[in-house]
Simulated scan of single mutants.
Amino acid sequence: MRLPLSDRADAGRLLAGRVAALGLDRPLVLALPRGGVAVAGAVARRLDAEMDVLVTRKIGYPRQPELGVGAVAEGGDPVYDEDLMARLGIEPAEMAGTLAAERRELARRVAAYRPGRELPAFAGRDVVVVDDGLATGVTARAALRAVRAGSPRRLVLAVPVGAAETVEAMRREADDVIVLATPWAFRAVGQWYRRFDQLTDADVLALLDRVRGA
C-alpha cells in the first residue's frame, strides 16, 4: 500500500477489508479514543458490528510528561515499559501520583463518552481493538490485557500502521494482529498520515453517534 495514508477514515476503510477476512462471529469493535474512534467506524460498519470505546491513558514520565513510560485502560491494571523504566532508573511505585491523575482523567472520559453505561461484556465474544497506529505499543498492550482479562473468545488488534518491532511484540498479546504497513524509520504515528488532526471529546461523540445511527 502507498504511504502516507490520506486520513484516519481512509485508513479505516482499508483496514476494514482485512479484518472482515478473518470471518469473526458477531464481533465487538472497541476503539481506543481519541484517534482510534475515527478508524474504527469504518471497521464496525463493514462488519455490521457493535462498536464502543475502551478508554486508555498514557502514563507520562513526571520530569518529561510527553514521554510515555506506561499506560492504563479502564478495568485494567497499569502496564509499564520495563526497559524504559530501567533506563530512567524509576520504579512503578514512584509513578503513584501520576497514575492517580491519569485514572481521574480516564474516569472523566468514560463518563463523557459512555455516560451511565458499562462496557459490553467480553466473555465468549470476538473482540477487535482498533487504534490509529502503534509506536511504542504500551497503550495497546494495556488495552489488550484489560480485554483479555474479560475472557474473549478471540482477541484481535487492528491498526493501519505500526513500528515493526512493536507489531511483533503485540502478537504475544492478541490472537491476531492486523496491520496494513510497518514502514522503516518509524518515529511517530502521525508521520504516516497526510491529515492527522487532533480530535476533541466532541469529535469522538460525533463519530460514535454516526456509527450508532448507521
Rank of each mutant, 00 (worst) to 15 (best):
L207E: 00
E94G: 14
A42S: 14
A202M: 11
G36I: 06
G70T: 04
A123G: 14
G133H: 00
R141A: 12
G190W: 10
R18K: 15
L14C: 02
A158G: 06
A163R: 12
E102T: 04
A111T: 08
L119Y: 09
A169I: 04
A73P: 13
L106F: 11
R109D: 13
G116R: 07
E102F: 03
M170V: 02
L106D: 11
V179H: 04
P120H: 11
A31G: 07
Q198V: 08
D48R: 15
R212Y: 11
F196G: 06
A123H: 15
A101S: 05
G70A: 10
G97I: 04
V127G: 03
A174E: 00
R125S: 13
V72N: 13
P4R: 02
Q64L: 14
G36K: 05
A121W: 11
L180I: 01
D81L: 07
Q64Y: 15
R148D: 01
V69G: 02
L24A: 01
R57P: 06
A181H: 14
A121M: 11
R8D: 02
T182F: 01
I59C: 08
R114L: 13
A107Y: 10
A169V: 06
P152I: 07
Y61A: 04
L106V: 07
L54S: 11
L99W: 12
L88S: 05
V127K: 00
A123F: 12
I59R: 10
M170Y: 00
R103M: 09
A149Q: 09
V72D: 13
L88R: 05
G116V: 09
R2M: 15
A93G: 15
